[in-house]
Every structure is written in C-alpha cells, then in structure tokens.
Design a protein around this nucleic acid. Structure first.
Length: 337
DNA sequence: TACGGAAGTGTGAACCGCCA
DNA sequence: TGGCGGTTCACACTTCCGTA
C-alpha cells in the first residue's frame, strides 16, 4: 500500500487528465483505465478525501492533471486512452526518469510535491563519480575527505558521551557502536561540540567540493554533469507538483539536446560553506542564446548521516534553490488557452 | 515576544549486492 | 537463500533565527 500523500498526488493527477466534472465524480467512478490502481488504493483515496487530509494535495494534483490535459505541450484537450500508474516500486540503479505516470505509452509524468530535493546520492557517487554511475561502497565519506579532523572530533564525541567500549578509530565502528552513539546524541549537537563540528563540517564540505571540481575539469564533463544534476534525459518528461508553499509546479524537462541548442555553459562552481553540517553550494552559469541573457541555476548539497549521528555512512542530499520555473531546461507548461 | 521561514535532523520504505 | 548493510527516495518534524 503506498503512502497516502504519494497516492493522492500521483493518482489524482491521473484522474485530472480525464474530463470528469469534478474530483468527487472521478473518485466515485473509480476508472479502470488507470492501470495498477486497485480498490484498496481507491479506498485509501476516498478515506483521505472524505476526512479532508491532504486537501491541498488533492486540489493541486487535480488542477495539474487538468492543466496537462489542456496544455499544447501535453494532451492538447484530447482525452488520454491509457494512463499507467507506476505504484510504489523502485527500479534498480539510478532512476533515469523519475516518472510516476505514463500516458498513452508516451508521456512520462513525475509528481513532485513539497520538495526541493533533486536527488539523494552517496557522497562518493556524487563527488568522485559526478553522478555518472551508481556504485556501492561502505566508505565513510567523512573519514575519506577529512580523516584527521574527523578522527579528532570522534575522540571528543566519545569523551563527551562518556560511552565506553567504543573503538579508538571511527572507521572501526560496528552496528552496535553506531546505535549507542546515535542514541547518546539525539537532536542537535550539544553546545560544547557544535563549534568543533562546524570546523570539521567545513573541511568536509570544502574538500568534497574540490574533489568534484577536479573530476569535472573538462568542459564536456562539466556539461554532462549539469545534465545529470538537473536530471535531463534523452527523452523529455513532465513534472507536475507543488513547491514548499504549495504553489503549483508544471513544467517539461527538456533533453540535453534542447539544452545545448539553447544554452551555452559558462561555468560550474562548487564551494564549501560554514554551516551546522557539511554544506556544498553549487552554481551553474549559462548564456541563453534565444533571449540573449545570462542565466544562473543554484543549489546546495547536504552531506549528512541519513539515520542519526554516526548511524551509518553519510548520504549527499542535492537541493535545487532556484525556483523550478526559472531553471534553464525546465520549460513551464502553458494552460492551452 | 510572536511568528514564519530556513536550517537541521529523523524516519520508513524499497531495492541491490554481498556474504554466511 | 535469507539476512543484513548500503543506497536512494520522499518527505515530516524539530529547532533556530530574523523580523515585525
């Protein structure tokens, strides 16, 4: 059974593609032409709709589906003859196109609500492999890029918690050790450790940024990295959703070919920043040939433990800070009028 | 001082690869 | 073949901080 919010955002978008009078009528009809949606999922939607939970998601998803149905980039006012819902499945390797719905076997729709996250990657896959491939490794990234300062900080942490029986080296932590540390360090860092962690975090961020810059030193590598960062693929797809303030988002993600035709890459920059956790800022500078203007895309990467302090190896969460509709390569959908 | 937004942190699920 | 750790996805929740 999928998460209710996710099910609402994806299936209600699909329902909005058909010409139902309103959402209540569409839910009552339980249309079978949306494949992979069974009665249990429709029950889940009915319950949420009746209780008013996720009312904003219902409203925006319905409107987004209707917009795509009208848009000249979308269905141009004709009803679809096939809508396939992917459901709560996860593909192997990197998701090339994060599609949740496929319309008429052609249009791929990604439903993204209340998130600025472009993707999560392991730090090594981002900073060492520039997102070109997904490989698994048990490397503790903090130790890999700042072994001395991270080791010293770990020693201070152990002393602070008073825990005994932990190894002297953080790379030797086993599952039980990590669990004990995680439980001993809930929430924010204690005030006594915060400044030291800030310094270690800055070193991790700075070194990580430098490593990625070294790995994309050639112009072609930088350009391909930007495509992967923005999740441009060989075929276009559509994103329908809402931003963190629930403002509707609806745009076509163009292809590297479209991108290269319209934009000239000027530079890609990354740098570490002082923050409460390792933070790498990124910025892409472009020239828009069509409008003869300069364009900027900005974001940041948080390198952090995904499941509590010392709770495992770190992850790299890649955020987009530029509003989606202002991002070069993301083409807002018209409303068909 | 209250409030809202930003920053930081936590969680659960799904999948893969490795190893016993 | 099953268990476990690592990776990724998609948020939700908590805390901090600036501003009115």
């Amino acid at each position: 059974m999928p998460d209710t919010r996710t099910a609402v955002s994806e299936i209600v978008t699909g329902l909005g593609l058909y010409g139902f009078r309103d959402l209540a009528q569409a839910l009552a009809a339980r249309p079978r032409f949306i494949t992979n949606v069974d009665d249990d999922v429709y029950d889940q939607l009915d319950e949420a709709f009746a209780s008013g939970t996720h009312a904003d998601v219902f409203r925006v998803a319905w409107a987004n589906g209707q917009r795509f149905a009208r848009s000249t980039d979308g269905l141009r006012g004709r009803p679809p003859w096939s809508v396939e819902w992917k459901g709560p499945h996860k593909p192997p390797a990197y998701e090339q196109i994060p599609a949740d719905l496929r319309v008429d076997h052609v249009y791929l729709l990604s439903c993204k609500y209340g998130s600025k996250i472009l993707q999560n990657a392991s730090p090594a896959n981002l900073f060492d492999r520039a997102l070109s491939e997904r490989r698994t490794s048990a490397v503790d990234w903090f130790d890999a890029v700042a072994p001395t300062s991270y080791g010293e900080f770990y020693t201070e942490v152990v002393a602070h918690t008073g825990l005994t029986g932990l190894p002297a080296d953080p790379t030797e932590l086993d599952r039980n050790h990590r669990e004990r540390l995680r439980k001993a360090l809930p929430g924010r860092w204690p005030a006594e450790l915060r400044e030291h962690w800030g310094l270690v975090a800055f070193e991790i961020a700075r070194t990580s940024a430098d490593r990625l810059l070294d790995n994309i030193s050639a112009k072609g590598e930088r350009e391909a990295f930007v495509w992967r960062l923005l999740r441009l693929q060989a075929a276009p797809y559509f994103v329908l959703g809402a931003d963190l303030k629930n403002v509707p988002l609806h745009y076509r993600v163009t292809t590297p070919w479209d991108f290269r035709t319209r934009f000239a890459l000027r530079s890609v920059d990354l740098w570490g920043e002082h923050a409460g956790q390792p933070l790498v800022r990124w910025r892409v500078d472009l020239h828009d040939r069509e409008l003869d203007t300069d364009r900027v895309i900005e974001g940041h990467v948080e390198v952090r433990w995904s499941h509590g302090k010392f709770g495992g190896v770190p992850e790299a969460k890649i955020y987009l800070d530029t509003p989606h509709h202002d991002v070069a390569g993301y083409q807002p959908l018209d409303d068909g009028s």
